[in-house]
Write a protein that binds this DNA or RNA. Structure first.
Length: 505
RNA sequence: GAGCCGCUAGCUCAGUAGGUAGAGCACCUGACUUUUAAUCAGGUGGUCGUCGGUUCGAUCCCGACGCGGCUCACCA
């Protein structure tokens, strides 16, 4: 990391010579009183002539993004959090000493300017520096002004540079923030309470996934990074928080891809005296409102497809989806043997211990999931693959559950919650048997969760929404890495991870 | 985890049928008081991802490794 090229050496030398002159290269006593965008919105409509009567002085701070020296006058563009503005620096105005110092400032340095506003001969609104100070000396050169930074790896690893030189990046992350705000608004206006529950859990639950393990030294015990907040949020419903949600990270010890990062952000929300039907309405509202807020339309372009997010969305059962998107006959849907054979026929590797429900789910994933481009709620999941969901009153083989698919990807999972403690215990026992049989993703037994249910959980429905994937959709991003500031990357310099040997110290 | 592709100056990229590497931007020196990819003149800058092999000689050919991108597998 201690690379020293000529350009860095030159800047360090400039830093030293500034210090020799008695100048603090990192002061913190400059207070800008305006922003680039404020000046633009106030004055951009006025012409050159009209601006000559504006004598007010403004203070502005920002990073130098370009610099053009023309002898005894110069132009720089500075960038602050709202945009860019041109600064005109004239020797006659700031004085000979300040001007010759200014000529040594580099692109990337921060400066503070005080002066009046005017328009140049070609009509660009600019601030004329009456005073100019260095606020920060930058020691590393920025990528070039024309092509910018395009190397994906560097953009992810050095997001700070990406943010400086690629303006779209900041815009994207502002959209991400606004999306989360809309989600929060939708729930808070329905009287939900936002909470935080443990990320380090002795028993990881609430999803079928492989957890990360960590260790608590003082307690001498392993802990798991949570794969879902579900069981804790439902404990809160037991406790009387009838409408509750959490937006935060989950951690899953699985592969990395364009759709998967080891840590990702989920919304989970639970509402007592509601069914999964009610949650469909909330999710439709949330996502369509967010689309309007972010893109001004319920129609979004995603990787060449137009997705229409206007409510109401298509609703279809798992079995209907299989029939629609494959050549499976109706008998496959109710006959385990036929389902098993059909699964093999389409290239799956069903296991002997799988029941009809699990097989049908796998068939659905294979044939239908990637075809669900427009928003679609898939309902009536098999009980076998839904250990936390409430059974359907008319058919115990299915549960009152839906998943939401958009662009062929799962965006949300929701169900009426299982609140029968005896049924829940039996389902946990089945999961434990799965685990003993080698399924690393099967649930653990959670005795305390059963105890909580035994006190009584009101009839409740709950949902989980993949925030990152929805942000991808709304920003037309192909990779989850584009919607995370710091996506997970291997260490830069070789495989310098902490070894077991080093861990002992 | 598997396959394919990539890694050359700070950035964006050329290139060498194997003979010590180029451009633009950036940077340095000089000129220039309304420019805007400013302009003009001159200049600096590279263990060509790492290690090994073949060769008189490797950035180029071969192998291993590292990192990344894409595809597939698992998953949300």
């Amino acid at each position: 990391m201690e690379d020293t090229n000529e350009l860095i050496a030159q800047r360090r030398q400039k830093l030293e010579s500034l210090k020799d002159e008695g100048i603090n290269p990192y002061p913190n006593d400059f207070r800008p009183d305006t922003l680039s965008a404020e000046l633009v919105s106030r004055f951009t409509e006025l012409d050159k002539e009209a601006l000559t009567s504006v004598t007010e002085s403004f203070s502005l701070a920002g990073r130098i993004m370009s610099k053009r020296v023309m002898g005894k006058a110069s132009f720089v563009h500075i960038m602050d959090r709202k945009g860019r503005l041109q600064v005109f620096v004239k020797r006659d105005l700031i004085g000979e000493e300040a001007y010759s110092r200014f000529k040594k400032y580099d692109i990337g340095d921060f400066i503070g300017i005080t002066g009046r506003i005017f328009k140049t001969n070609v009509g660009e609104l600019s601030i004329e520096a009456a005073e100019l100070r260095l606020l920060v000396k930058s020691l590393r050169p920025l990528p070039e002004k024309w092509h910018g930074l395009t190397d994906q790896e560097t953009r992810y690893r050095q997001r700070y540079v990406d943010l400086i030189v690629n303006p779209g990046v900041k815009e994207l992350f502002k959209k991400r923030s606004r999306f989360i705000n809309v989600v929060r608004d939708c729930l808070i206006e329905r009287d939900y309470l936002e909470v935080e529950t443990p990320m380090m859990q002795p028993i990881p639950g609430g999803a079928t996934a492989k957890p990360f393990v960590t260790h608590h030294n003082a307690l001498g015990m392993d802990l798991y990074l949570r794969i879902a907040p579900e069981l804790y949020l439902k404990r809160l419903v037991v406790g009387g928080i009838e409408r509750v949600f959490e937006i935060n990270r989950n951690f899953r010890n699985e592969g990395i891809s364009q759709q998967h990062n080891p840590e990702f952000t989920m919304l989970e929300f639970y509402q007592a005296y509601a069914t999964y039907d009610d949650l469909m309405d909330i999710i439709e509202d949330m996502v369509s409102r967010a689309a309007m807020e972010i893109n001004g339309s319920c129609k979004v372009e995603y990787q060449g497809e137009t997705i229409d997010l206007s409510p109401k969305w298509t609703r279809m059962t798992v079995k209907e989806a299989i029939l629609k998107h494959s050549d499976a006959s109706e008998s496959v849907l109710s006959d385990r043997k036929k389902a098993f054979d059909y699964a093999k026929k389409i290239g799956l590797e069903p296991e002997e211990r799988w029941g009809l429900g699990k097989i049908l789910t796998e068939i659905f994933d294979e044939v239908a999931e990637h075809k669900l481009i427009q928003p679609t709620f898939i309902t009536q999941y098999p009980t076998e693959v839904s250990p936390l969901s409430r059974k359907n009153d008319d058919n115990p083989d299915i549960v009152d559950r839906f998943e939401l698919f958009i662009t062929g990807r799962e965006m949300a999972n929701a169900f009426s919650e299982l609140n029968d403690p005896i049924d829940q215990k039996e389902r946990f026992n089945l999961q434990v048997a799965e685990k003993d049989a080698g399924d690393e993703e099967a649930h653990f037994m959670d005795e305390d969760y059963i105890r909580a249910l035994e006190y009584g959980m009101p009839p409740t429905a709950g949902a989980g929404l993949g925030i990152d994937r929805l942000v991808m959709l709304l920003t037309n991003s192909a990779s989850i890495r584009d919607v995370l500031f710091f996506p997970h990357m291997r260490p830069e310099e070789g495989r310098k991870t902490i070894t077991d040997e080093e861990k002992k110290h």
